[in-house]
Design a protein around this nucleic acid. Structure first.
Lengths: 247, 247
DNA sequence: AGTGGGCCAATGGTATTACCTTCGGGGATC
DNA sequence: GATCCCCGAAGGTAATACCATTGGCCCACT
């Protein structure tokens, strides 16, 4: 749209604003978004019905529906059908975020090596916090996860999910929701689809699980150095494996 | 259309799977998404017109449009109107990602302190990579940014944007697009709206800019230790400031 | 009187149709 | 030959109708 007025750069140049070309549905999206931002509505609240929104905004139902689709795709609302249905504000989840992240990352010019490196930075960086803040419950949970992984290994039922679950739980030991969300976003869909599809490691499980166990032990003893060391070798093996199939 | 003939689903009760409740538009979204994932279509390609898609999918135009809205909201396509208009695949940008991230983070129960801590983990973690890989051009660019910031300080025109630009450029010194995208996502919208709105630091600029300069120098000399130290104090000041207004 | 089944209204989902706006290109006009 | 206008393609919006889902209410039957 910026290009349009350059063709007719006449006397009016600079006098008029480019007369908003924005879509009507986008206006609605913006309005509702700002409602959320300003806390006028809290998670769980219900928006008026589509038909009522039509009247309020003075637009057709199609337009309202398009706005709702955008909001829904952004994970800001959840739509339920039926008698007590409607659009409900939903507190955003890391899973939502991860989904969008996965789509974008899959299509962007990122190599598996790039992603692994970024992951390494982050997961190594959080170790000190995790070690410092892990509660007894956190540690117990981690131990359970390791145990389960060992069981699964014996039964040949080990999956990447189990590794992801461990790393995610580890992140939650920082007791920082922002960190949790990021790690979850990384691990959930992204590495799942990006790695699993291409590598599907055969002998990843055993060594990885062993290292997970060592890591838990280090955390239990509040030994930052050891924890970092274990995590580093753990991630580095993933990195080198990824690198070998780099495109 | 799928729903209409379900009026006669009587005797078959229980024999069939729970008949997918999925929205028709969602099916279309999935189909197009998988086209992208499989590389059947590359960025820049144009989808058939809405009316043509209606025929192909055997649905109404409204449905197609809803699907396109979702894809557009996800940053996967861009829609242009007019004669040679239509839906074009677009390679996703970090800005897009950041936008979605910002929306979600703003509404999630994250405190500014949480976010700052996460940022600290990441931005500290990338220092070694940045120091190791920064090219002469990278360093020159950083120096320019510092110079500009100093100028702006004199003219009282210093904004948070300039700080963000520096940190983003610094991240690009890692020459890892994944890291770039993440830092950008953090800095762009999130901290902008989350911090700027609430703190709007008055004297942030001077010390910050000085530290930026020191950081560039450390990178120039490939001194990881020094760089980390500078960055740590730099971020820590932000952190303590944020903490004081913590909710 | 209590309980269960059927009807109804509210609400989202989809289809159809019509019209407007935007924009590019080609043909008519000067 | 240059300019201008009109047409067609494509998205944007509106209006309407109908289907599907769901929860509650009411009535009938026990």
């Amino acid at each position: 749209m910026a290009g349009r007025e350059s063709t007719k750069s006449q006397v009016t140049d600079g006098l008029f604003s480019p007369v908003t070309n924005e879509r009507v549905s986008q206006h609605i999206v913006d309005q509702i978004k700002s409602l959320l931002r300003d806390g006028k509505l809290v998670p769980g609240d219900r928006l008026p019905s589509e038909r009522e929104l039509c009247e309020r905004f003075g637009v057709s139902r199609v337009t309202v529906r398009e706005a709702l689709r955008v909001l829904e795709a952004g994970g800001l609302i959840q739509i339920r059908v039926g008698a007590r249905g409607g659009a409900f504000f939903t507190s955003p989840t890391a899973a939502r975020l991860g989904e969008g992240l996965a789509d974008l990352l899959q299509l962007s010019p990122l190599t598996a090596a790039d992603v692994t490196e970024a992951r390494m930075v982050f997961e190594l960086g959080i170790i000190p916090y995790a070690v410092e803040r892990a509660t007894a419950e956190d540690i117990a949970d981690l131990q359970v996860l390791v145990k389960e992984a060992e069981q699964a290994l014996k039964n040949d039922a080990y999956t990447m999910d189990m590794s992801a679950a461990f790393h995610t739980r580890l992140a939650s030991c920082t007791h920082n929701p922002a960190i949790e969300m990021l790690v979850q976003s990384f691990h959930g869909p992204l590495l799942m689809s990006l790695n699993e599809a291409r590598v599907n490691a055969p002998l990843m499980g055993r060594k990885g699980t062993t290292e997970h166990g060592q890591l838990v032990k280090a955390i239990e003893q509040r030994d930052v150095e050891a924890a970092i060391k274990v995590m580093k070798t753990h991630l580095q093996r993933t990195a080198s494996r990824v690198e070998s199939i780099d495109e």
